[in-house]
Design a binder for these strands. Structure first.
Lengths: 178, 178
DNA sequence: CGCAATTACTTGAGAGTTCAACTATTGGAG
DNA sequence: CTCCAATAGTTGAACTCTCAAGTAATTGCG
C-alpha cells in the first residue's frame, strides 16, 4: 500500500516548492479567468458550464442526479443547488425517473443546448489561449500524466479517462470540444 | 505579439481534451482536499493558510494590505474579508502604517505564528502525499513549466518565481516548507 | 409480507468570493 | 496653496459551495 505516507515526514524541496507555488497561482487564476469569461458570455460560472456540457454528451441529453454528480465528482447537494439555478434559467429541466420515484433526471433543454453551443467557442478559445497554445505536445502529455497521478491520490478507483465523461468509452457528441 | 488568438479558432485535440478533463478534475479535488485537511486541522481554508504563510516569510511578519494582495494575486476586497476573519481569530493584527494614514499593515500575531507552525507539517504532508511523492523529478520540473506558461497568459508581467513570494529574491524563513 | 437499512435527493444555515460602490488620504498640476 | 485625480482600503449584497440534517422511496432480510 502506498496511499498515505509510510515514508517519514519531509518538507518540500526547493524545486517542489517552486512548482507548488507556480501551480497554486496558475490554477487559481485559471479558475477565475474561466469563470469571468463564462460569466461575461453566458452569465454562469464554469462549474455550470461543465454540467451543461456533460448533459450534452449524453445520448438522451439527460442524466440521473446521482449519476451526474458522480461523473462530475461533486456532491449531490452541490448539484441540487446548481440544477436549481440552471432550471430557473430554463437551461435544464428535471424529469421524473419512471423506474424510481425517488430519482429525477436532469435534462438539457433546447434553450440550454443553444446557450452551450453559443458559448462553447468562446470558452474553448479562452482555454486554448491560456493553456494549450502555450504547451508543447510533450507538455500536454505531461499535463495529463501529472493530473492523473494527483487524481489517483484523491479519487482512487476513478479512472482519469472516465472522469468528466458521461458515456465512458466512445463519445457520442464530441461537439463540445472541452 | 502572441497574447490572444491571432490563430483561427480551433477545438481541443483528443489529447488536449483528455489532459484538460484530467486537470479540471484533479485541480478541483486537490483544492477541496487541501481545504478539508486545513479546516479539520486548524479551522481555516487553504486560502487563509497561504496568507499566514506569506506574512511569516516577511522579515517583519507584516505587509501592507495592497502589497499582500499583490503577492497573493487576489483582490483587495477578498483580502479585506479574509483579514477580518483572521483578525477575529486573533491570528493577524492590523497595524497603522506610519507613512500613510490610508494604509494598514497586516501582521502575524504570536498566536497566528503558532497556529501556522503547528499546522504546516500536516498540510505539507497532504501536499506531498497527494502530489509530490507521485511525481518523478522530471514531472516536478514540467509541473513548474506548465504552471508558469499558464501564469504567463493570465498574469503577464508576473514572474512565476516572484509570485507567492513576499521578499522576492532570497528567502528569509524557508520554515513553512510550502 | 413487514420493517429496518439504504439510497435519492433536498433543505437551510454558514462561510468565502466577487463586484460595484463608497470613504479617506495622498500626490501632483497649475 | 488649491484642487482633482489616483491610491488604500472597506462595505454590503449577491452568489456558490459545504456540511449536517431531513424527507421520501426502495431494497432486502427474516
Amino acid at each position: 500500500m502506498s496511499t498515505a505516507s509510510d515514508t517519514p515526514f519531509r518538507w518540500l524541496t526547493d524545486d517542489e516548492q517552486r512548482a507548488w507555488r507556480a501551480y497554486l497561482a496558475a490554477s487559481a487564476r485559471l479558475g477565475e479567468h474561466l469563470d469571468r469569461v463564462l460569466t461575461a458570455e453566458a452569465g454562469m460560472p464554469h462549474a455550470y458550464y461543465i454540467i451543461l456540457a456533460m448533459l450534452s454528451e449524453t445520448p438522451s441529453g439527460g442524466l440521473r442526479m446521482t449519476d451526474l454528480a458522480d461523473v462530475l465528482l461533486i456532491s449531490k447537494s452541490r448539484l441540487t443547488h446548481a440544477v436549481n439555478k440552471l432550471e430557473a434559467l430554463g437551461w435544464v429541466r428535471r424529469d421524473a425517473d419512471p423506474s424510481d420515484r425517488r430519482g429525477s433526471v436532469a435534462c438539457l433543454t433546447e434553450e440550454g443546448r443553444r446557450v452551450l453551443v453559443a458559448t462553447a467557442p468562446t470558452h474553448v478559445t479562452s482555454v486554448v489561449d491560456a493553456v494549450f497554445d502555450r504547451l508543447t505536445p510533450e507538455q500536454v502529455e505531461q499535463f495529463y500524466e501529472i493530473s492523473s497521478r494527483i487524481l489517483e491520490a484523491l479519487a482512487p478507483g476513478e479512472s482519469p479517462d472516465s472522469v468528466l465523461r458521461p458515456a465512458s468509452p466512445g463519445d457520442p457528441t464530441p461537439a463540445t470540444g472541452a
